[in-house]
């Protein structure tokens, strides 16, 4: 019988030459270039001060975490799930001796990896564009050493904070065959997140949590451990329930 790593390896291979794979680099790079273009267009008036890297990173990360990441997760989950839905692959996978839940968890892990890749690409992109901006205008405050530690903190926090959102989006995309359902649910919940982030309980809303975390880090506030634990615990629980729900269904 296959081990989980062989299931994961099989799922990984299915990503080859897919839109989902290319978008994991294209979307974060597009977001970076958008912010870069915004700054480059206002080189003389852009408000980068002493903490140029901090301001530039924050502008990139807040946009990513609050708006782009939820949409990115929506798109990636729909595309990854679509690989199986479109090929009719479930009837092949479930007719093997591999426990059904292994496929769900492997796909969930793959999507989580794509979230990590996307966020890391964003970080690399912002470093490169920051360097370019410094060459374009040395007064922007981007000449200081790159704050790798802070950037790593943002990156890890966003990846972890997005876990429950990713788990729910994965379940929706795998549970319903329609690409439209996955996208519609993701877009509606993302739009709600933009509003909910300002409320008291926004920290418990999965689609706003990553944005809140970035905002707190930037303001030097500590993010409470409870929301993080709730997010991570929720992600684990949702993954297990989602796996159970999707796996027990008949393949018609």
């Amino acid at each position: 019988m296959a081990t989980f790593s062989s299931v994961l390896s099989s799922e990984h291979l299915k990503l080859k030459r897919t839109l989902a794979f290319w978008l994991s680099m294209a979307i974060p790079l597009a977001m970076v270039l958008l912010q870069f273009a915004t700054v480059a267009a206002r080189l003389d008036s852009w408000g980068l001060g002493n903490d140029g890297w901090g301001d530039y990173a924050q502008s990139q990360y807040i946009f990513w975490a609050l708006l782009a990441l939820p949409l990115y997760v929506t798109l990636e989950t729909a595309l990854v799930a679509g690989i199986e839905h479109n090929a009719g692959g479930w009837r092949h996978l479930y007719a093997t001796d591999v426990p059904r839940g292994a496929f769900y968890i492997a796909k969930q892990a793959l999507i989580a990896a794509l979230v990590a890749v996307g966020t890391i690409v964003l970080t690399v992109g912002l470093v490169l564009t920051g360097r370019i901006l410094h060459r374009m205008n040395p007064d922007l405050g981007l000449g200081s050493p790159i704050p790798w530690r802070d950037l790593a903190r943002y990156t890890v926090a966003i990846i972890v904070a997005g876990s429950l959102m990713t788990a729910i989006a994965t379940w929706v995309a795998l549970r319903w065959q329609s690409f439209v359902v996955a996208c519609a649910v993701g877009i509606v919940l993302t739009v709600c997140g933009v509003v909910i982030i300002n409320s008291d309980w926004g920290q418990y809303y999965p689609w706003a949590f990553a944005g809140m975390v970035v905002s707190h880090i930037n303001q030097g506030d500590r993010v409470g451990i409870a929301p993080f634990l709730a997010n991570l615990g929720g992600a684990v629980l949702w993954t297990l329930l989602g796996s159970w729900n999707v796996s027990r269904r008949d393949v018609l």
Binding site: M1, K16, A87, G88, G89, H92, A95, T96, V98, P99
Partner: peptide, 22 residues
């Protein structure tokens, strides 16, 4: 379900499963 006997069974149900990108 997912029993070990399925390892000895091959199947082609309602058309082939083909990943077109591969």
């Amino acid at each position: 379900r997912s029993g070990s006997i399925l390892a000895r069974v091959g199947s082609l149900v309602e058309g082939p499963v083909v990943y077109p990108n591969l």
